[in-house]
């Protein structure tokens, strides 16, 4: 059975990032992150940083940490493929890293061009040394992101939380 529709997970993420004192949010837009991107732009305690390519995000967040700030990365699954070599920076220097990845190409996908990367997102991240956690149900989102923030910044490791396409809902064309 699907979870109760009372949990609006899209509105829960920003307050959790804020409570964790996340100061920089680097992103390439995805429709699944619309609300979160807007909330980060509207929050004077955060800097929302639009990127031309997801690979820039590893650099930006490494720089943020060098300067004493926490940052997170927002992207869709196809962007993971753009990050692989840049993720070596996180691994070799043990920069804390958290990416929130909206999934495409896995659940009722209409656009087959999303499938090759969507089907390889988890393997690609793991191959690049990133710990992968997954949310399939609305009530999972808040606790998973809260725990992932602690894992990334307290244990100084790279973590990705995949927000599944089933959770987000099929894209309607």
């Amino acid at each position: 059975m699907d979870s109760p529709p009372t949990v609006d997970w899209r509105r829960e993420i920003h307050p959790i990032l804020r409570a964790a004192n996340v100061r920089q949010v680097a992103y390439v837009p995805d429709a699944g992150h619309i609300r979160l991107i807007e909330a980060c732009h509207a929050d004077p305690s955060m800097r929302a940083i639009v990127l031309t390519n997801e690979a820039e995000g590893m650099g930006v967040l490494a720089g943020a940490w060098l300067g004493g700030q926490k940052g997170v990365m927002l992207m869709q699954s196809s962007g993971v493929g753009n990050c692989i070599n840049a993720l070596s920076l996180m691994q070799i220097c043990r920069f804390p890293f958290l990416a929130l990845v909206t999934m495409r190409g896995e659940w009722g996908e209409f656009n087959g061009w999303q499938v090759p990367m969507g089907q390889n997102t988890e393997a690609a991240l793991k191959g690049a040394g990133v710990i992968v956690q997954r949310c399939d149900h609305p009530e999972d989102v808040a606790p998973t992101i809260d725990a992932a923030l602690a894992l990334a910044f307290d244990s100084e490791v790279a973590v990705a939380v995949l927000l599944s396409q089933r959770l987000i809902g099929r894209k309607k064309f």
Partner: peptide, 20 residues
């Protein structure tokens, strides 16, 4: 000092400049 992650120097500068 970077020894890899080619292309990342300027973005690192950006995150650092915002933080400091």
């Amino acid at each position: 000092y970077l020894w890899g992650a080619m292309g990342s120097a300027a973005p690192i500068g950006l995150g650092l400049a915002i933080a400091q």
